[in-house]
Design a protein around this nucleic acid. Structure first.
Lengths: 114, 114
DNA sequence: CGGCATCCTTTCCGATACTG
DNA sequence: CAGTATCGGAAAGGATGCCG
């Protein structure tokens, strides 16, 4: 069940994962992108309660800079911008799934006192 | 390949995952715990360059409070404290693996300009 | 619609000193 | 050995106003 980690390589990978996914919003944004129903800036605003415009734009830029998200601007008025996952971003899907099913398992390990 | 997310349940799971794993240090700490060679406070200090005592103790406390890490104190002088993963913490292993292999795949999707 | 710039508050985090 | 307490700087994040 457990992988053998080779410290020299894995340590820097961990650092990279932390850097790329760090923050309160990135996983949330990615989650909606995996969902496939959200591509536009205003969609995120509606679906992620509490996020500010600043944070939404900033985190999308970071995800773009890290090669996870691609941004496509349609030169029209009013402007239209679509966000999608890059191939590398798509490759994150299994990992996010694993994280989510881990969260779902919580009650199995620590049943709520009822 | 893609799981279907049911927003009502998954959204709160994402929030929980984010809360539990957030920060610069937690994944690093967990990585060493998965590795199995690190159980004591001073081990973490040696193996996680740059972490301060404050952060190490604080993040270990949070992981403990979230039920991922168990702390065992041996009542002796000098004191000895061992940290280990709870069962739920162990269950995180596949997800961390998935994250690490995703990071390893990076060059496959975006070959470095060489 | 999809942002950016600015200001301000809050939170995070490192350094240092101290303790059972 | 394994921490805690306190302080100050850095960084994250929110609110508001403005723009193509």
């Amino acid at each position: 069940m457990r992988k053998i980690y080779t410290p020299s390589s894995a340590a820097s990978d961990v650092l990279e994962v932390i850097q790329i996914l760090e923050g309160r919003w990135k996983l949330l944004i990615l989650f909606h992108l995996f969902d496939g129903k959200v591509q536009r800036y205003s969609d995120f605003e509606k679906l992620i309660p509490g996020i500010s415009q600043k944070m939404l734009a900033q985190q999308l830029r970071k995800l773009e800079a890290d090669g996870i998200v691609a941004r496509k601007v349609y030169p029209q008025v009013p402007p239209k911008v679509e966000y999608r996952l890059t191939d590398w971003g798509q490759a994150l899907c299994p990992a996010l799934d694993a994280l989510l099913s881990w969260a779902e398992q919580k009650d199995h390990f620590a049943p709520p006192a009822s």
